[in-house]
Amino acid sequence: MEPALRDGDWLIVAPLGGAPSPGEIVLARDPRQPERLVLKRVASVQDGRCTLLGDRPDASTDSRVFGPVAVEDVLGRAVFRYAPLPRLGPI
């Protein structure tokens, strides 16, 4: 997800409170392995299913590999990065 997210970023993830919207970065369960959590960008939402894509298509494991993700498996949206300090700010 670089440069939007970097390895080691500390994020605040807020509960969804409504359907996810295209363009936002969400925390979701990997449908292949529900205990594995991923952060990806919402590409589209249709019939209760989200297509999640990484920002780097050539290097990303996303809905192209694991398929669309049920909205119930989207746990929240990444709203704020609180560390590292030089990168502090809203997502």
Binding site: M1, E2, L5, D7, D9, W10, L11, I25, L27, R36, L37, V38, L39, K40, G54, D55, R56, D58, A59, S60, T61, Y82, A83
Partner: peptide, 15 residues
């Protein structure tokens, strides 16, 4: 105290 309790993957490898 501030460290996140949950780890998520947003990994893009340098291919």
């Amino acid at each position: 105290i501030l460290a996140p309790k949950t780890v998520a993957r947003a990994h893009c490898d340098l291919p």
